[in-house]
Structures are given as C-alpha cells and as structure tokens.
C-alpha cells in the first residue's frame, strides 16, 4: 500500500505533569508517514504518557501534538481523532469478556456508528488476517493469551487507522508468542503502510523498527537507527 496510508506525527515541545509528577518535559518528535519507531526507557520514564499524547488519550500541558498537521486536541474532540486515525494495542488485551472475538473486533465500529453487516464483514476479514478466522465466535475466556492479543491487534486495525500505537504489546506473552505477535504487527505495517510506534523493552522490537527512541526521566535521550542498534 502507498505511503499515504500512514499518518505524519509531529510532537513539538510537549510537556505533561500529573500534579507534582512531571511525566514528560519538552519532548519533540517527528514521525514520517509509514515510519516504525521503537520507544524504550526505564519504568516511569514517560513512555505510556508519550504514546497517550500522540494518540489523543492525554492532553499536553504544554506544546503541541499534530497528526497530519492537525492538532489532536484543538479543532475536534480527540475521541473523533482516535476513532478515525488511531489504533491502540496495550500490554493487556482488554477484550470485553462478555463478547465474542468477532464482537470485540467490532467494538470500535459500534462507536463510529458503522452498520451491523459492514461491521461483521470487516471484523471477520481482520480475524482472518490475524489467523483466527475459525475462532471468531469464541469468547476471550476460550482464547490463549497470544490469541487474545491477536484479537486485540485486529480490533486496533478495524477502523483502518493511519497510526498504530502499541504499548508493550508483548509484555504479557512468552517469547515464542511474542515473536508471532511482533511478526503480525510489522507484517501488517509493511502491507498496510500505517505509521507505527511500539513501546517495548524487547530488543527484537528495536531491531525491526526504523529507529529507536529512548526516554530518560520524561526527556528524549539518544535516538538510534535500527541498523546501529543491531550492530
């Protein structure tokens, strides 16, 4: 797919505090369309907060966050931006226990008011894509951790996002399963061309990403190309 499928992300001098805790301080970042970056850093260094700012889950106290040149927080409600542009994957799959795998994948589309038949069609296509077509009507309790996480990936993609944000997507999985989920994420990125940011401690993620960004106490430390990290 074309480069156009990916969003351009610009973070300018963004800062975020929670009461006395400064989570992020003067962070600037540019992501090209279709670029994949890995974000690492110690616990509490602000990785999740940065991802939240980019995806419109958190409002910056200072600075700006622009997706394709438009501020996420200014001209429309961030829920709309999330609905239209962004897909999220978290460490925990956060599937709704009462809903089947297919219904879980449909959830973002319910929020967007997409018609039932169309929701179903798109959800089934994505479950096929993540290799779970035969598990569509199973409940989360009937799926393994890795399978659940693949359903979560399908759910993140169902709104055809141009920006995919993953916060420790393999943090709860064993190494073999992690490998499969990462394969899936990067394969989908290659095929669909969306911009991708993955928070992870996993060196495998850094290897697959175009570059790695390290956060140290809410600031951006050294950035490196994937090739350099590999060497």
């Amino acid at each position: 797919m074309s480069e156009e499928a990916g969003a351009e992300v610009l973070v300018e001098h963004a800062g975020k505090s929670f009461g006395r805790i400064g989570a992020l301080d003067d962070v600037s970042l540019h992501m090209d369309r279709g670029e994949a970056i890995a974000i690492t850093g110690r616990s509490g260094s602000g990785k999740s907060t940065l991802l939240g700012l980019i995806g419109g889950l958190e409002r910056p106290d200072r600075g700006k966050v622009l997706i394709d040149g438009r501020p996420v927080w200014l001209d429309r409600h961030p829920a709309q931006a999330r609905r239209e542009l962004v897909g999220f994957v978290f460490q925990r799959h956060l599937l709704l226990a009462a809903l089947s795998a297919r219904a879980n994948v449909e959830v973002p589309l319910i929020g967007a008011g997409v018609h039932r038949a169309e929701r179903r069609r798109r959800a089934l296509a994505l479950l096929e894509e993540v290799g779970l077509a035969d598990r569509a009507e199973h409940l989360p309790s009937e799926l393994s951790g890795g399978e659940s996480q693949r359903v979560a990936v399908a759910r993140a993609l169902v709104n055809e996002p141009r920006l995919l944000l993953a916060d420790e997507p393999t943090g709860a999985l064993d190494s073999v399963t992690s490998e499969r989920v990462l394969d899936l994420l990067f394969r989908l990125r290659d095929r669909l061309g969306m911009t991708l940011a993955v928070v992870s401690y996993d060196p495998d993620v850094a290897k697959r990403a175009d570059r790695t960004l390290t956060l140290i106490d809410g600031r951006i430390g050294d950035t490196g190309e994937a090739g350099i990290a590999q060497a």
Binding site: Q80, A81, R82, R83, V107, P108, G111
Partner: peptide
C-alpha cells in the same frame, strides 16, 4: 477506558 480509547465518545 478501552471503549474510550477506541474512539467511543464520552
């Protein structure tokens, strides 16, 4: 939180 994350309006 997830519903909100995937773009359900408040």
């Amino acid at each position: 939180g997830l519903l909100s994350t995937v773009g359900w309006s408040p």
